[in-house]
Amino acid sequence: GYTNPSRAKTAAGMLRYAGNDVVAVLDSGEAGKTAQALLNAGGDTPVVTSVKDAGEANTLMIGVAPTVGKLPSPMRRHVLEAIQHGWTIESGLHDFLCDDEEFAAAARDSGAVLKDYRKNTERDVAMRQGLRAECLRLHTVGHDCSVGKMAAAIELARGLESGGVGTKFVATGQTGMMIEGDGLPIDAVVGDFISGAAEKLVLENQHHEAVVVEGQGSITHPCYAGVTLG
Protein backbone atom coordinates (compact mmCIF):
# COMPACT_ATOMS: atom_id res chain seq x y z
CA GLY A 1 0.00 0.00 0.00
CA TYR A 2 3.02 2.31 -0.05
CA THR A 3 3.53 2.21 -3.81
CA ASN A 4 2.77 5.75 -4.92
CA PRO A 5 5.07 8.50 -6.26
CA SER A 6 5.09 10.40 -2.97
CA ARG A 7 5.88 7.58 -0.56
CA ALA A 8 7.94 5.41 -2.90
CA LYS A 9 10.16 7.98 -4.60
CA THR A 10 13.19 5.70 -4.26
CA ALA A 11 11.38 2.93 -6.12
CA ALA A 12 10.18 5.40 -8.75
CA GLY A 13 13.71 6.71 -9.25
CA MET A 14 15.13 3.22 -9.64
CA LEU A 15 12.45 2.24 -12.15
CA ARG A 16 12.99 5.42 -14.15
CA TYR A 17 16.79 5.40 -14.27
CA ALA A 18 17.83 1.79 -13.57
CA GLY A 19 14.71 -0.09 -14.62
CA ASN A 20 16.59 -2.85 -16.43
CA ASP A 21 17.80 -4.08 -13.04
CA VAL A 22 14.30 -4.33 -11.56
CA VAL A 23 12.47 -7.68 -11.73
CA ALA A 24 9.36 -6.75 -9.76
CA VAL A 25 7.81 -4.34 -7.27
CA LEU A 26 6.75 -5.95 -4.00
CA ASP A 27 3.49 -4.59 -2.56
CA SER A 28 1.00 -7.11 -1.22
CA GLY A 29 -1.78 -4.53 -1.32
CA GLU A 30 -1.37 -3.75 -5.03
CA ALA A 31 -0.40 -7.15 -6.48
CA GLY A 32 -1.44 -7.77 -10.06
CA LYS A 33 -0.92 -4.20 -11.19
CA THR A 34 2.10 -2.77 -13.01
CA ALA A 35 4.76 -0.36 -11.84
CA GLN A 36 3.71 2.07 -14.55
CA ALA A 37 0.16 2.19 -13.22
CA LEU A 38 1.30 2.95 -9.68
CA LEU A 39 4.50 4.97 -10.10
CA ASN A 40 4.37 6.35 -13.65
CA ALA A 41 7.61 4.49 -14.36
CA GLY A 42 8.73 0.94 -14.98
CA GLY A 43 6.40 -0.05 -17.80
CA ASP A 44 5.04 -3.57 -17.39
CA THR A 45 7.22 -4.44 -14.39
CA PRO A 46 4.83 -6.54 -12.28
CA VAL A 47 3.71 -5.78 -8.75
CA VAL A 48 3.85 -8.99 -6.69
CA THR A 49 2.66 -10.18 -3.30
CA SER A 50 5.79 -11.64 -1.75
CA VAL A 51 9.48 -12.42 -2.18
CA LYS A 52 8.73 -15.88 -3.56
CA ASP A 53 6.81 -14.29 -6.46
CA ALA A 54 9.77 -12.16 -7.58
CA GLY A 55 11.25 -14.62 -10.05
CA GLU A 56 15.04 -14.74 -10.14
CA ALA A 57 15.58 -11.65 -8.00
CA ASN A 58 18.38 -11.80 -5.43
CA THR A 59 18.21 -8.28 -3.99
CA LEU A 60 15.47 -6.48 -2.09
CA MET A 61 15.73 -2.72 -2.33
CA ILE A 62 13.58 -0.80 0.15
CA GLY A 63 11.86 1.68 -2.13
CA VAL A 64 10.19 4.03 0.33
CA ALA A 65 11.61 7.24 1.78
CA PRO A 66 9.48 8.12 4.84
CA THR A 67 10.10 11.45 6.54
CA VAL A 68 11.31 9.87 9.77
CA GLY A 69 13.49 7.34 7.95
CA LYS A 70 12.01 4.30 9.67
CA LEU A 71 10.99 1.02 8.08
CA PRO A 72 7.17 0.81 7.95
CA SER A 73 6.12 -2.08 10.19
CA PRO A 74 4.10 -3.91 7.47
CA MET A 75 7.33 -4.28 5.48
CA ARG A 76 9.26 -6.12 8.18
CA ARG A 77 7.94 -9.55 7.21
CA HIS A 78 8.98 -9.05 3.58
CA VAL A 79 12.46 -7.90 4.57
CA LEU A 80 12.85 -10.84 6.95
CA GLU A 81 11.68 -13.30 4.29
CA ALA A 82 14.22 -11.92 1.81
CA ILE A 83 16.97 -12.17 4.42
CA GLN A 84 16.03 -15.78 5.12
CA HIS A 85 16.36 -16.47 1.39
CA GLY A 86 19.92 -15.11 1.51
CA TRP A 87 19.19 -12.00 -0.55
CA THR A 88 21.08 -8.73 -0.38
CA ILE A 89 18.94 -6.06 1.29
CA GLU A 90 19.61 -2.47 0.27
CA SER A 91 18.20 0.31 2.42
CA GLY A 92 18.42 4.09 2.38
CA LEU A 93 16.60 4.52 5.69
CA HIS A 94 17.98 6.39 8.69
CA ASP A 95 17.28 3.33 10.85
CA PHE A 96 20.00 0.85 9.91
CA LEU A 97 19.12 -2.75 9.10
CA CYS A 98 22.41 -3.95 10.55
CA ASP A 99 21.43 -2.48 13.94
CA ASP A 100 18.15 -4.41 14.01
CA GLU A 101 18.77 -7.51 16.15
CA GLU A 102 16.21 -9.68 14.36
CA PHE A 103 17.46 -8.79 10.89
CA ALA A 104 21.13 -9.08 11.87
CA ALA A 105 20.63 -12.53 13.42
CA ALA A 106 18.72 -13.78 10.38
CA ALA A 107 21.44 -12.43 8.08
CA ARG A 108 24.13 -14.25 10.04
CA ASP A 109 22.19 -17.50 9.65
CA SER A 110 21.46 -17.14 5.92
CA GLY A 111 24.53 -15.26 4.72
CA ALA A 112 22.40 -12.35 3.52
CA VAL A 113 24.08 -8.97 3.09
CA LEU A 114 22.53 -5.91 4.76
CA LYS A 115 23.56 -2.70 3.01
CA ASP A 116 22.68 0.59 4.72
CA TYR A 117 23.35 3.42 2.27
CA ARG A 118 23.12 6.15 4.90
CA LYS A 119 25.72 4.58 7.19
CA ASN A 120 28.95 6.56 6.91
CA THR A 121 32.11 7.60 8.73
CA GLU A 122 32.76 10.97 7.08
CA ARG A 123 34.93 13.18 9.31
CA ASP A 124 36.60 15.64 6.92
CA VAL A 125 36.10 19.38 6.67
CA ALA A 126 36.28 21.35 3.43
CA MET A 127 39.71 22.87 2.74
CA ARG A 128 39.10 24.39 -0.71
CA GLN A 129 42.39 23.01 -1.96
CA GLY A 130 43.11 21.12 -5.15
CA LEU A 131 39.94 22.10 -7.00
CA ARG A 132 40.47 21.99 -10.76
CA ALA A 133 39.25 25.22 -12.34
CA GLU A 134 38.77 23.53 -15.72
CA CYS A 135 36.05 21.25 -14.31
CA LEU A 136 32.58 22.78 -14.53
CA ARG A 137 30.75 22.24 -11.23
CA LEU A 138 26.95 22.38 -11.21
CA HIS A 139 24.68 21.91 -8.19
CA THR A 140 20.91 21.44 -8.27
CA VAL A 141 18.99 23.10 -5.42
CA GLY A 142 15.28 23.49 -4.77
CA HIS A 143 12.78 25.38 -2.66
CA ASP A 144 11.50 22.15 -1.09
CA CYS A 145 11.98 18.39 -0.86
CA SER A 146 10.73 16.05 -3.59
CA VAL A 147 10.71 18.69 -6.30
CA GLY A 148 13.01 16.83 -8.70
CA LYS A 149 16.55 17.86 -7.74
CA MET A 150 17.94 14.38 -8.38
CA ALA A 151 16.01 13.91 -11.61
CA ALA A 152 17.16 17.32 -12.87
CA ALA A 153 20.77 16.48 -12.01
CA ILE A 154 20.65 13.11 -13.77
CA GLU A 155 18.96 14.54 -16.86
CA LEU A 156 21.43 17.42 -16.99
CA ALA A 157 24.41 15.08 -16.64
CA ARG A 158 23.08 12.73 -19.31
CA GLY A 159 22.31 15.64 -21.61
CA LEU A 160 25.81 17.05 -21.27
CA GLU A 161 27.30 13.60 -21.83
CA SER A 162 25.24 13.03 -24.96
CA GLY A 163 26.41 16.43 -26.20
CA GLY A 164 30.03 15.38 -25.97
CA VAL A 165 30.90 16.81 -22.56
CA GLY A 166 32.44 14.22 -20.25
CA THR A 167 30.14 14.50 -17.24
CA LYS A 168 29.65 12.72 -13.92
CA PHE A 169 26.41 12.71 -11.92
CA VAL A 170 27.49 13.02 -8.27
CA ALA A 171 24.97 11.33 -5.99
CA THR A 172 24.40 12.75 -2.51
CA GLY A 173 21.29 10.81 -1.48
CA GLN A 174 20.30 7.18 -1.14
CA THR A 175 18.29 6.93 -4.35
CA GLY A 176 20.99 8.59 -6.44
CA MET A 177 23.59 6.33 -4.85
CA MET A 178 21.55 3.24 -5.72
CA ILE A 179 21.21 4.40 -9.31
CA GLU A 180 24.79 5.58 -9.81
CA GLY A 181 26.57 2.98 -7.68
CA ASP A 182 28.59 5.53 -5.69
CA GLY A 183 28.28 8.81 -3.80
CA LEU A 184 27.72 9.85 -0.18
CA PRO A 185 24.54 10.25 1.92
CA ILE A 186 24.89 13.96 2.69
CA ASP A 187 21.80 14.16 4.90
CA ALA A 188 23.25 11.49 7.20
CA VAL A 189 26.67 13.12 7.58
CA VAL A 190 27.39 14.93 10.87
CA GLY A 191 26.72 18.64 10.29
CA ASP A 192 30.33 19.76 10.83
CA PHE A 193 31.47 17.49 8.01
CA ILE A 194 28.83 18.05 5.32
CA SER A 195 30.97 20.54 3.41
CA GLY A 196 33.96 18.21 3.60
CA ALA A 197 31.95 15.27 2.29
CA ALA A 198 30.62 17.35 -0.61
CA GLU A 199 34.09 18.63 -1.45
CA LYS A 200 35.45 15.07 -1.32
CA LEU A 201 32.93 13.99 -3.95
CA VAL A 202 33.94 16.85 -6.24
CA LEU A 203 37.66 16.16 -5.82
CA GLU A 204 37.16 12.48 -6.59
CA ASN A 205 35.31 13.24 -9.82
CA GLN A 206 36.85 16.45 -11.15
CA HIS A 207 38.84 14.57 -13.79
CA HIS A 208 35.60 14.83 -15.79
CA GLU A 209 34.89 17.95 -17.82
CA ALA A 210 31.82 18.59 -15.67
CA VAL A 211 30.26 17.29 -12.47
CA VAL A 212 26.59 17.69 -11.61
CA VAL A 213 26.12 17.48 -7.85
CA GLU A 214 22.71 16.29 -6.69
CA GLY A 215 21.08 18.77 -4.31
CA GLN A 216 19.51 17.78 -0.99
CA GLY A 217 16.84 19.16 1.28
CA SER A 218 15.43 22.64 0.75
CA ILE A 219 16.78 26.17 0.68
CA THR A 220 13.65 27.53 2.39
CA HIS A 221 11.99 24.69 4.35
CA PRO A 222 12.96 25.05 8.05
CA CYS A 223 13.06 21.28 8.56
CA TYR A 224 15.52 20.55 5.77
CA ALA A 225 17.50 23.72 5.05
CA GLY A 226 20.38 22.56 7.26
CA VAL A 227 21.54 19.83 4.90
CA THR A 228 21.18 22.13 1.88
CA LEU A 229 23.26 24.93 3.38
CA GLY A 230 25.74 22.63 5.15
Rank of each mutant, 00 (worst) to 15 (best):
A112P: 06
V64M: 06
A152L: 12
A82C: 10
G176L: 07
T121C: 01
D182L: 01
R118H: 05
G176F: 11
M178E: 04
R76T: 12
P66A: 04
L138K: 09
V170M: 02
G69R: 07
P66V: 10
G142L: 06
R123M: 08
A126R: 15
V113W: 00
D100C: 05
N120Y: 08
S146I: 02
P185C: 05
A65R: 04
S146P: 00
D182H: 14
Y117V: 08
F103R: 01
E180G: 01
T172F: 03
W87S: 07
L136I: 13
R123Y: 04
A133H: 10
G166N: 15
L71R: 08
L71S: 05
L136R: 15
N120H: 10
M75I: 02
A112Q: 04
D109Y: 00
T172M: 08
A112G: 02
H94I: 03
S162N: 14
E101R: 13
W87R: 01
R158F: 01
K168V: 12
F169T: 02
L156K: 04
E90H: 01
A107C: 11
H143I: 13
R158W: 09
M177K: 03
H94L: 09
F96E: 12
S146V: 08
I154W: 07
G159Q: 13
P66Y: 08
D109H: 09
T167G: 11
H139N: 11
G111V: 04
A152Y: 00
K115T: 10
G69L: 10
H143V: 10
V125W: 00
L156H: 02
A151G: 00
D144R: 05
A153D: 07
T67A: 14
S73N: 13
A171Q: 03
H139E: 06
S73F: 12
L131C: 00
H78M: 13
G166K: 15
V125A: 12
V68N: 14
G173L: 04
V68E: 13
A82L: 09
S162V: 06
L93E: 01
A105Q: 14
L80S: 14
H143G: 14
I179F: 05
G183Q: 08
L138C: 10
V170C: 13
M177E: 03
C145Y: 11
T175G: 03
I154Q: 08
L136W: 12
G142I: 07
F169R: 03
S91V: 03
S146T: 13
M178H: 00
D144Q: 12
K149S: 03
P72Q: 06
H139P: 00
E161N: 14
R118F: 07
R118E: 03
T167E: 06
R108V: 11
T175H: 04
L184G: 01
D144P: 01
A106Y: 06
G69F: 11
T121S: 15
P74H: 04
I89R: 04
E102Y: 00
I83R: 07
D99L: 10
R108S: 14
M150K: 09
G173T: 10
E155T: 11
G111F: 01
H139S: 06
K168R: 15
C98Y: 12
R158D: 15
V141R: 03
G148C: 07
H78N: 13
G130H: 07
